[in-house]
Amino acid sequence: MSSDRSDPNNTTHFGYEQVPVADKQRRVREVFSSVASRYDVMNDLMSLGIHRVWKRFVIDLAGVRPGERVLDVAGGTGDLTREFSKLAGPQGQVILSDINAAMLGEGRRRLADKGIVGLPVVQANAECLPFADASFDLVTIGFGLRNVTDKDAALRSMRRVLKPGGRLIVLEFSKPLNPGLAKVYDQYSFKLLPLMGKLVANDEASYRYLAESIRMHPDQQTLKGMMENAGLERCQVYNLTGGIVAVHRGFNLAA
């Protein structure tokens, strides 16, 4: 698919629906603007709290050291940002970025509630990050890549801003490894998830989209190949909860 947004004949998926490429970013923005205030509550409900274990795995894998520069792409409400900030310390810098202003507002508020103020918050598109080449030791994107229109462009953009030796970590829903688990997961995703969205967030449609977007996201090996095509090396895949979630890590080893 061409990434030319000006051509009305170019389409991409928004969940299971095909939409003009130019429209996807707007529609994703509307989804997350709708759910921003309930986002963390719904995460706890949807995952039975397991999302905290997945994120802890990312934090441990990232191995942020004092003085490092970190970019949290699609960082939303800032839970990863908060932990990275503690690890990088006053000598380092952590930037929270997201394309959605409502999510960034929630993130800034929640960081302030935890006593973290003055941390840079940048509204940015993952496909064309507004940072210089070789700016960061670590770039992360947690549960955001599947909502990006041009994932290949986003991966190239994230690799570009990595310092030589820097690492990219992608945390995302993926494909269950066991067929039996996949069947149970489908029932949960398409029946219970929209119902929870309706009852808790008063937004059934957005959570139906989220379930569909997970199914349209590349599987573990496909995403690994996309990372390699973007110039990342030593790419590894870590399956969590039977492959319902996968963590991908790759390095920018270019001199």
Rank of each mutant, 00 (worst) to 15 (best):
R38A: 06
L181D: 03
S34T: 14
M227V: 13
R26L: 14
N9I: 15
P218E: 03
N252E: 02
A88S: 09
E233A: 10
Y209P: 03
F136Q: 07
F190K: 07
W54L: 01
N9H: 07
T149M: 09
L111K: 05
V170A: 04
E212K: 01
A134S: 11
A62M: 04
P164C: 14
M103D: 02
Y39S: 00
D186K: 04
R52L: 09
I141E: 07
C235N: 06
N252D: 13
P20W: 02
M216F: 11
I50R: 04
Q93H: 04
N125T: 12
A22N: 02
L210I: 14
P66R: 12
P218L: 06
R38W: 15
A22P: 02
I99E: 03
R160P: 05
K114I: 03
Q91M: 15
A230I: 12
V148F: 01
F131G: 12
M216E: 13
V19M: 08
A153L: 10
I116C: 10
Y238L: 11
A254C: 00
F84D: 01
G89E: 09
G180M: 09
F84Y: 08
V121K: 07
A88D: 06
L171V: 00
D79G: 09
L199I: 15
M42L: 10
A62V: 04
A36C: 14
I59R: 08
V139W: 01
L253E: 15
I95E: 02
N147W: 00
R159Q: 09
G231W: 05
V31E: 01
V64E: 01
L199K: 14
G165F: 10
V247E: 05
